[in-house]
Simulated scan of single mutants.
Amino acid sequence: MFCPFMSVATVEDALIDKVLAGERITREDALALYLLPLVELGELANRRRNLIKQDAFDGRGNDIVTYIIDRNINYTNVCNVYCKFCAFYRTEKDEDHYVLSHEQLDQKLDELSAIGGVQILLQGGHHPKLDIDWYLAMLSHIREKYPHINIHGFSPPEFNHFSEVFQMPLREVIAKFKEAGLGSIPGGGGEILVDRVRNRIAPLKCDSDHWLKVMEIAHELGLNSSATMMFGHVETLEDRIEHLDRLRVQQDATGGFTAFICWTFQPEHTKLRAEPVGSGEYLRMQALSRIYLDNIENLQSSWVTQGPKIGQVALKYGANDFGSVMMEENVVSSAGTSFRLAKEEIEFLIQDAGYEARRRNNWYQLLD
């Protein structure tokens, strides 16, 4: 505990020492760290990254930045939750709504395999009419025809939707999906895990407890997942920190989060009116997330929303992973942000920042 008679400078020094020692910080600590100069906060995050990664990859974790070759596949754009921040969804009445056939999936997976891809991020809208047999057939088809591709699929809001539509307990749905071929679960739909915020931006999407429940069950069933945060809209700084705290508590309990990714709200073509925050705010929150989430080993740089250069800078603000080559992305690009990078460009950006670029799989095991 800090003495009430300590000077502000002394309190700040004590908090910095706490961070550098690798100790767990509190919510109050996070609020104080947020006020530090951006470069100073970034350096603290970089030091925490090095503490966490120093023993990885046979002791070379501080020298390596990883990336994955995968593809985002949105199997349908039909959705009935109408999130205000989403420009991707369609209703069944819209002429450009779709549901992918197995043949269309195969074409996308063949293209991914041709460039050495090892994973798909498989997500869709909340389609009100697709039944469980449709999903299980899709998973089985991919697993049997493309056994080298990990299916990283279906966000927690989707699983809550499935449970309602299929009239089936959540645990049973997730277990059946795993048996059919699901390999891991993305952290999509996390937005901000504060229900007051969720009720404003996505009132028909599952609440924060139900989002976390999917992750709890998945981890118990042996499925790893990622965790995310989409910020810079109607939330407060305290809301962001509560979000991080809920993830940290969940990770303490189940240990199934492999990585954390945060990004800023992209406003174009959406119904949500909010002044977008800049790259500086993104870097500040990523740095703070690295320090707060002391039990999640990997942090991805969000170059998809921030652009390649800020994605590169983020490697000095706590990130140890450059995300994905992502040969296809539809959701963020629908909101007006569209960055694309080939494998060679990602490797150059990593190496230019002073690290060795290495490919990985979903479980952060090195390939090559």
Rank of each mutant, 00 (worst) to 15 (best):
F2P: 02
F57K: 02
P156A: 13
A357F: 04
S334K: 06
R196E: 15
A227L: 14
Q351W: 01
R284N: 10
L293H: 05
R48S: 12
A114F: 04
I296P: 00
V173E: 01
C86R: 11
V81Q: 13
K213D: 05
F348P: 01
D55H: 02
Q300H: 14
H148A: 09
N298A: 07
Y292P: 08
V197G: 05
L283E: 00
I142Y: 01
H161T: 01
H161S: 14
G354T: 09
S7G: 15
D195H: 07
V332G: 01
C79S: 12
E281G: 04
K93H: 07
Y317Q: 06
D352M: 06
Y67D: 09
V234S: 08
I350W: 01
L293F: 11
E40M: 07
T66D: 07
R90D: 05
E345L: 02
E23T: 12
D58T: 03
A342H: 11
I192Y: 03
F57W: 10
L221M: 10
D209H: 14
D96G: 05
I201K: 06
A175P: 03
I346Q: 03
V214T: 13
D352P: 06
F159C: 02
V165P: 00
S333Y: 04
E111V: 06
A253G: 02
D106C: 06
L366R: 04
L136H: 11
Y75Q: 04
D110M: 08
Y82D: 11
I142P: 00
L130D: 00
C262Y: 03
F260D: 02
G22T: 09
D368W: 03
T254L: 08
R47S: 12
L204P: 00
L299F: 14
S301T: 15
V234F: 08
T91E: 02
D321Q: 07
D110C: 05
T258P: 03
D207M: 04
N224I: 09
Y355R: 00
K145D: 05
L139Y: 15
A175T: 06
V325T: 14
K309M: 15
M285V: 09
I25K: 09
E158W: 09
R284Y: 10
A175V: 05
F88H: 02
W263E: 06
L139R: 04
I120S: 00
G311N: 07
K178Y: 10
K316I: 00
G59Q: 03
I296K: 02
M215N: 07
T254K: 15
R196Y: 07
G278V: 10
A137E: 15
M229N: 10
V118Q: 09
A287M: 10
F177Y: 13
A218I: 10
L366E: 04
D63L: 11
M326V: 13
L130G: 02
H219G: 15
N62V: 13
T254E: 12
S140M: 06
L35K: 15
T264P: 00
G323K: 14
P186D: 10
T66L: 08
E235S: 04
E328R: 12
F154M: 09
Q266F: 05
L36M: 13
A259T: 14
N46H: 14
P128K: 05
C3Q: 04
D133L: 08
M229E: 12
Y75M: 12
C83V: 08
